[in-house]
């Protein structure tokens, strides 16, 4: 069960797995996620968006960035290995409809969860403009995949090593200021990026969806660890989201909550890497 059929390294710290998971592949919709766990006794539960699925082959893809201990352990798995525990699809699917002009903004690893949404928006008959952002060229992912489905792809890097030098909010603001105005913006990326995307579109009154990646435990609404304040109300990201109206989300409080375990995680990472793992940059991409 849950065998990894294919592994690929997309960027310095970014990996893609194609995993055998027929039930999830059959049932999942864009916007939904899974939770993975490698060690039933002690392992962390890691939520990852389903980046793609093939119901006929019974497979799903996940794309993840190595940020800490849990994702480091995942990155060590190879094609042929099995994910011990894999549960999903979780969360509410994205509301896909014909809106007109949809601008999809992806930052960093957020491009992965954005991809199935952009794909479905296109399939629903929208004009889809994709804005991709990263710190530098080598960190960009899925640009070819996005080009294959979108009407237009704009690229921004902080250092100008690819596309335009600057932040994704610049072209986003320009699009909002020109005609036809976007009917919907979907922004997925680091919390600050989503916050500033929402701030950019607000004056133009352009509806903006964001996908939140809070800390989670169960993913079924049982623990409340994923709670965020949206429009003054407490919502659970795992069951009420992960997508919310970006103009309503309290990003400040969310960003602080996401720092809860920072110290502990840094020391765990330190401990675990010193003990067992070679430094990142010596690892070779693997998979066919």
């Amino acid at each position: 069960m849950n065998r990894i059929l294919f592994k690929e390294q997309l960027a310095a710290e970014v990996f893609r797995f194609q995993i055998e998971a027929p039930l999830i592949a059959a049932g999942r919709k864009p916007g939904q996620f899974v939770i993975l766990q490698q060690d039933t006794e002690f392992g962390e539960r890691i939520p990852l968006t389903i980046a793609d699925a093939d119901p006929a082959k019974g497979t799903i893809s996940v794309i993840f960035q190595r940020v800490g201990d849990g994702t480091q352990r995942l990155a060590e798995l190879e094609a042929g290995d099995c994910i011990t525990n894999l549960v999903g699809p979780l969360g509410r699917p994205t509301h896909i409809d014909k809106f007109g002009l949809v601008v999809c903004v992806g930052g960093g690893i957020g491009v992965a969860p954005l991809y199935p949404i952009a794909q479905a928006m296109k399939a629903a008959g929208n004009r889809v403009v994709v804005i991709l952002g990263a710190r530098k060229k080598s960190l960009l992912i899925l640009t070819d995949e996005m080009r294959a489905i979108a009407d237009e792809v704009l690229i921004c890097t902080d250092d100008g090593s690819a596309g335009r030098k600057g932040l994704v909010t610049e072209p986003l603001g320009e699009l909002c200021g020109s005609e036809p105005k976007p009917d919907l913006v979907v922004a997925i990326g680091p919390t600050v990026m989503m916050k500033f995307c929402a701030a950019t579109t607000r004056p133009f009154g352009v509806r903006t969806l964001v996908s939140l990646n809070t800390i989670m435990v169960d993913g079924t609404g049982m623990c409340g660890g994923c709670r965020v304040t949206v429009g003054g109300q407490v919502k659970f990201v795992c069951v009420d989201g992960p997508e919310f109206d970006g103009h309503q989300v309290d990003f400040e409080s969310m960003a602080k909550r996401m720092q809860t375990y920072r110290q502990q995680e840094q020391s765990a990472q330190h401990r675990c890497r010193l003990a067992q793992h070679p430094p990142h940059n010596q690892e070779k991409p693997s998979g066919p």
Binding site: V217, M222, K256, T260
Partner: peptide
């Protein structure tokens, strides 16, 4: 109640 360090018992005990 959303401050860092506030747990529901469910989250705390599950962890």
């Amino acid at each position: 109640e959303s401050l860092v360090g506030v747990y529901s018992a469910n989250e705390y005990l599950t962890r």
